[in-house]
């Protein structure tokens, strides 16, 4: 489903070097590694937000990719509900509210992001990714801002999602356990 071949990327100093991996159609794959080991870079390359210096990413042409960024990236001039409707305008408000409900955000549906806590914004960003839907879900540190209870909620959702989709999650959270753990090595920094 997603074939990564000899992927290399550097920003002056190398971040990813000759990385290859085959991801099947579904399952939860956890990317681990120290800060700066290239987890986020790999997700950005798969999402098409960066171009590799070398190597290739093979995926079906029509594959729909849904992302949770490290930052919530909610638009500040829209309510949570509007932020969700923005990414999937053909879906109904009821569907959006149902997704917000999953993450205990229904009460906050009409609130603006700047009035919410970091954890609520992070859950809203996850809800947005689910509402958008897709074949491949790329989630970057989805439990970083969450307390244990909410993190558990997100992990359960991720596992459910992985039964039918490919979920690749970059995390430092030991509570997230996937079908496979991919440890990215720290690249040597150029002096």
């Amino acid at each position: 489903m997603l074939q990564i071949e000899h992927l290399t990327k550097s920003y002056g100093a190398p971040v990813l070097k000759d990385f290859s991996y085959f991801f099947p159609e579904k399952g939860l794959f956890v990317l681990r590694g120290n800060s700066g080991s290239g987890k986020t870079t790999l997700l950005r390359l798969i999402a098409g937000l960066e171009t590799p210096d070398d190597g290739a990413i093979q995926k079906p042409d029509q594959a729909k990719i849904s992302v949770v960024f490290q930052e919530a990236r909610l638009l500040p001039f829209y309510t949570l509900l509007e932020n969700l409707m923005l990414v999937a305008p053909k879906k109904t408000k009821e569907e959006a509210l149902a997704v917000l409900e999953k993450f205990a955000l229904r009460e906050a549906a009409e609130k603006y992001p700047d009035t919410l806590s970091g954890g609520m914004k992070e859950r809203a960003a996850i809800a947005r990714s689910l509402f958008f839907g897709g074949d491949i879900f790329l989630w970057d540190e989805p439990t970083k801002e969450l307390d244990a209870g909410n993190a558990g909620l997100v992990i359960e959702e991720m596992k459910t999602l992985a039964r039918a989709h490919l979920v690749i999650c970059a995390t430092h959270d030991p509570a997230i356990r996937g079908d496979a753990e991919i440890v990215l090595p720290q690249q040597e920094k150029r002096l």
Binding site: A47, G48, L49, I65, S66, V67, F69, E71, R73, L75, F77, Y78, L86, V87, P89, R128, F132
Partner: peptide, 27 residues
């Protein structure tokens, strides 16, 4: 850049990007 990347990954392009993302940001 982060906002524009968000628009790109969630396939908000063309007129929708202009009217729903860019113009409200400029307002």
């Amino acid at each position: 850049r982060q906002t524009l990347e968000m628009a790109k990954v969630f396939q908000i392009t063309g007129k929708r990007k202009l009217f729903k993302v860019e113009l409200p940001s400029i307002l």
